[in-house]
Design a protein around this nucleic acid. Structure first.
Length: 624
RNA sequence: GCCUCGGUAGCUCAGCUCGGCCGGAGCGGCGCCCUCGUAAGGCGCAGGCCGUGGGUUCAAAUCCCACCCGGGGCUCCA
């Protein structure tokens, strides 16, 4: 039996005239059924051998779909043309009645058998709305619910441990790998990564960072923009700027020059067309004065043409070009999720142009070192692992080198290999942060690109005075700042919200002073604040007319790492009562001690001043 | 794009089943009392034509229709 199942808004059907002599009697007029599953069906040759089984199976399939589309109205509609080998008429008519009986506990409508019918149908557009099934007697195994195009991109999976030892992984038995079941943080994180990549996928539900980013007044939805575009409050802007400051330091050390390209590109330029092509449906584009324009979905559309126009000699190599840019991708509506998947994000991207692959490997290593530092300093010392992706051939030829790089990162790696090169890179290393919930966030990536130099005519003049294509390395230290922030926030609540905290250098407010009595202790508080400020510490004063308890609570809910209460006792001797958020306990220390402690923790990190009025009484509430 | 849930005060939400006696609470804000000692002190005040537009009705936050916007899921992406 062949079945065609259509989840429909409505079906209207009217019997016109008998198509066969044996057609059943029928004299009802036009019928209309709304919000139903229309079951077109045709009995096939051979089905009569075990009609009961066929009907039973059909019943099963129909109920399965009903369940999924969440309706209980069925229309049974015989349609012989679904098959090229129809069963005989009598059996076919019988099958209709049997099916109706089988489904009789539901709201079933049957259209007459053997008539020419006129019908109008409106089928819904969701993925389950159009399904076909085939049932054959004697075939017991159920067809898969969805027949996916099972194109297997990767053919080989390998794990490297921190020492660079190699373990082959079976896609279907990955859980059994000993290396994934060791009782270490690395092993556990790697297991989570492998699960996300080839296992049952990511954990679902509302991501925890959404509530946090709003509670901390960092980032918020923006009701006047497109979905997936966010507004940033002062503290959020500060956070982003500090991270980018840090990034700038890394770039400077690496020796790259910083450039800035437009956000908007002309699609009728062949290069742009090629570069944006991969993003196809995902670009924001429109027409302006007859010209097709698009917002940049990545840094390449700006950076490649930029590099093309440079005059590069072998003496300039390796040439390092860095850009930090806003990218726009029109992700599907339903795919957007907090800051994790957005339509506008900031990316930091370096391209290194080298003379040849050998030289590129050296640079690759150096870029990985940078990414490692970044992971360890900004993201999380513990909870990240490596992922390599590339071709089987590249792996075979460069195994030792890949192992060497991995060893230097001090993290285990998961390697996915495909027979054919599917992207421009032959091999890439992704730096994946692992959330407390087990999901991954790709932070950095370093990619070995052996083809685009030639393809986009990015060349250097060699000693031989001839043009040679560059081997290009792509390194995005932050695939997206937004995602990085997502991880930071979720990582912060790894052990619960109680003592959750951002790294001190990223805390928008590092020290809060609470004068017990605003009038009496204000002067001292202000002097203290000034002293701390001189040491480049972000400090503010909660001078609101509230009880001490209430102000402590506010400070804690804003994740302020150090809270000082200033009262009569402090005026007398110079000891401060310091509440450390990390421990939730308060200790007495002198101003100098506190300064030293804070400075020690933030010594080499960027600093930016408080982006808000110092006194809380002068500060608006941004959210809630 | 599809499915689904939602849109009520600055924020979080209750009220809608069964139309009227419904426009509320907490937080936040403001004011007053208190001059406070480590995660919510007390009292008071101001904030909303209940997403938009239609419809039904003597009467709509509540019922119906359309649209807009947001969350989640699917698909997609990786």
């Amino acid at each position: 039996m062949k079945l065609l199942l259509l989840h429909s808004d409505y079906l209207e059907v009217e019997a016109r005239e008998k198509a066969v002599d044996s057609a059943e009697d029928y004299d009802e007029g036009k019928k209309r059924v709304e919000e139903c599953l229309v079951v077109f069906n045709a009995l096939e040759e051979g089905d009569e051998k075990d009609l009961d089984y066929v009907i039973e199976k059909a019943d099963e399939e129909i109920r399965d779909i009903l369940d999924q589309v969440n309706t209980d109205k069925v229309v049974i509609y015989p349609w012989v043309h679904l098959t090229s080998k129809p069963g005989n008429l009598d059996d076919a008519m019988r099958s209709q009645k049997l099916l109706e009986e089988k489904l009789s506990d539901l709201e079933v409508t049957r259209t007459p058998f053997g008539w020419y019918k006129e019908f109008e149908i409106h089928v819904k557009g969701h993925p389950l709305s159009e399904l076909s099934r085939e049932i054959r007697p004697g075939e017991d195994d159920k067809k898969p619910a969805k027949e996916r195009e099972g194109e297997e991109e990767f053919s080989r999976f390998i794990i490297l441990d921190e020492e660079g030892n190699e373990y082959e992984v079976d896609k279907h038995k990955w859980k059994e790998s000993d290396i994934l079941n060791e009782d270490t943080r690395n092993s556990e994180n790697l297991k989570n990564l492998v699960r996300c990549e080839i296992g049952e996928g990511e954990e679902k539900g509302k991501p925890p960072h959404i509530e946090i980013m709003r509670d901390l007044e960092l980032v918020d939805y923006c009701d006047v923009s497109d979905a997936g575009h966010f507004k940033w409050h002062p503290k959020g802007v500060l956070l982003k700027e500090l991270i980018l400051d840090y990034q700038d330091e890394l770039v400077k050390e690496y020796g790259a020059f910083k450039i800035e390209n437009p956000l908007l590109y002309r699609l009728n330029d062949e290069r742009i067309n090629q570069l944006i092509g991969e993003f196809q449906e995902k670009i924001y584009n429109w027409e302006e004065d007859g010209e097709k324009l698009a917002m940049r979905p990545a840094s390449d559309p700006g950076q490649f043409p930029y590099a093309q126009n440079l005059s590069i000699s072998y003496k300039h190599l390796p040439l390092k070009q860095y850009e930090e840019t806003s990218c726009f991708r029109k992700e599907q509506r339903g795919e957007l999720s907090g800051l994790r998947r957005v339509r506008n994000f900031t990316m930091t991207d370096t391209h290194t142009f080298t003379a040849n692959e050998e030289r590129a490997k050296k640079e690759f290593q150096e870029l990985c070192d940078i990414c490692k530092d970044l992971m360890n300093s900004i993201i999380s010392k513990g909870d990240w692992v490596l992922e390599w992706e590339g071709t089987v051939d590249y792996w075979k030829e460069n195994k030792d080198w890949i192992k060497k790089v991995t060893r230097k990162m001090g993290k285990p790696a998961f390697i996915q290999l495909s027979e054919e090169r599917s992207h421009y890179y032959s091999m890439k290393a992704d730096f994946e942060a692992i959330h407390p919930s087990g999901i991954e966030t790709q932070v950095s990536t370093v990619q070995m690109d052996l083809v685009n130099g030639e393809r986009f005519d990015i060349t250097y003049t060699g000693e031989d005075n001839r043009e040679h294509p560059c081997t290009i390395l792509h390194c995005s230290t932050f695939g997206s700042i937004e995602r990085t922030l997502t991880f930071l926030l979720e990582d912060a609540v790894r052990n619960g919200k109680m003592n959750a905290t951002l790294p001190l250098w990223l805390s928008p407010i590092q020290v809060r002073i609470i004068p017990v009595s605003p009038e009496k202790h204000m002067k001292y508080s202000e002097e203290l604040a000034e002293k701390l400020e001189e040491e480049r510490i972000r400090v503010d004063i909660d001078d609101r007319n509230e009880s001490v308890g209430r102000r402590i609570r506010r400070s804690e809910s804003e994740w302020v790492p150090y809270t000082l209460v200033v009262g009569d006792d402090e005026l007398e001797d110079d000891t401060l009562s310091v509440r450390r958020r990390e421990t939730g306990k308060e200790v007495d220390m002198e101003a100098e001690e506190l300064t030293e402690e804070v400075k020690e923790k933030i010594k080499d990190y960027p600093f930016r001043p408080l982006p808000l009025p110092q006194k809380l009484s002068e500060r608006p509430k941004f959210i809630g």
